[in-house]
Write a protein that binds this DNA or RNA. Structure first.
Lengths: 127, 127
DNA sequence: TTTATCTTTCCAATTTAATCGAAATATCTG
DNA sequence: CAGATATTTCGATTAAATTGGAAAGATAAA
């Protein structure tokens, strides 16, 4: 069953990924898989101070793009691939196609240059 | 021929879409299709002051998610669907799957909880 | 309980993003 | 050229994101 992501959630997810540091974290986690990495391991691999990493992990958590679980004194952060797939679904459905079977009421689809709107560019009535 | 987007470009595109205002603009443009909308038309539909819109359009342009063309004294902004599809491709390829045919050298894939890393949680050797 | 390890929170400094009135630029029309 | 329309740039302001040292909270081990 495909869940559709709300626009506000999509914006949160996009924002969470729109950072060099966070995208790097997320990609590492995706490569890693469900087992996840601890913050310590991530700081080692990304060479970023732990408070900074913690900040970015929280952003990813808020966007629900990662999950965390505790094991002993370690935390493990894992990617939420389902969430990611919902994001891709949102983008595909809303941002990649002319959707709506080709626009609303006052939207002329393809032919562009032909019968377009610009009131200025049309031949002036017999200059 | 499928072009692969570089990570820096993906970050720029994600950042460009990670804004309520810009996502709204972009979705309108996608629904509209290649003919595009003028800034005037967009300000009318989105009820945002023209300098603010102009700022957001520039962000979308910088990320190459839209293009613009001039016709007379109007500009028309259109969605760059190819770019958008490249972004979705990037996300799908790098952020949605365990990629790399399941991880690098020191990455144990699925079984998680079993033979995992945590040195602490394993049975202590005969407490 | 004390100590060591892991991770986060706190906080202050810095940087970057967003907003929008006013002014400037560009193009068309008369 | 002067006037009208379309759009952007400028500049000032406010808001939000990012960074990382120092301190605090959690958990485990000795």
């Amino acid at each position: 069953m495909i869940t559709i992501m709300k626009s506000g959630d999509a914006i949160a997810a996009l924002g969470a990924l729109a950072s060099e540091a966070r995208l790097a974290v997320f990609r590492l986690l995706v490569k890693r898989g469900p087992e996840g990495y601890t913050p310590t391991e991530l700081t080692r691999r990304l060479e970023v101070p732990s408070p900074t990493l913690s900040f970015h992990l929280r952003e990813l958590l808020n966007a629900r793009l990662v999950t965390s679980r505790r094991e002993g004194r370690n935390l493990f952060y894992s990617p939420n691939l389902e969430r990611m797939q919902q994001l891709v679904g949102f983008l595909t459905d809303n941002c990649c196609t002319l959707a709506d079977g080709a626009c609303g009421p006052d939207c002329r689809p393809l032919p562009a240059s032909a019968q377009a709107i610009p009131p200025a560019t049309r031949q002036r009535k017999r200059a």
